[in-house]
């Protein structure tokens, strides 16, 4: 199931990563934010359809979320 266009979700994820860039661990902070506020369907859509649109921090965050989900 897709929720929102992949482009829009990628934009949002990159925006989150940019604003969390100065935290101690930007990847973990970005992953935690997305996990806390996005539906699983939004996360799946982003991971499956727009990973290539992400900057390095958001991309690493999505990979971390995928790993955490097992």
């Amino acid at each position: 199931m897709s929720v929102g266009t992949p482009e829009r979700l990628a934009y949002m994820a990159n925006q989150i990563a940019t604003n969390l860039a100065l935290t101690n661990d930007p990847v973990a902070a970005t992953a935690e934010h997305i996990h806390s506020f996005w539906t699983p369907a939004m996360q799946r859509t982003l991971a499956s359809e727009a990973l290539d649109r992400l900057g390095p921090v958001a991309r690493a965050a999505m990979i971390q979320l995928d790993a955490d989900a097992g």
């Binding site: 199931m1 897709s2 539906t39 369907a41």
Partner: peptide
């Protein structure tokens, strides 16, 4: 236990045909 959709996400999902 999972968060739901925010208003703009609901509208996005509607245009995608899932809401």
């Amino acid at each position: 236990p999972e968060p739901g959709l925010r208003i703009p996400n609901m509208l996005d999902a509607a245009t995608d045909g899932t809401f």
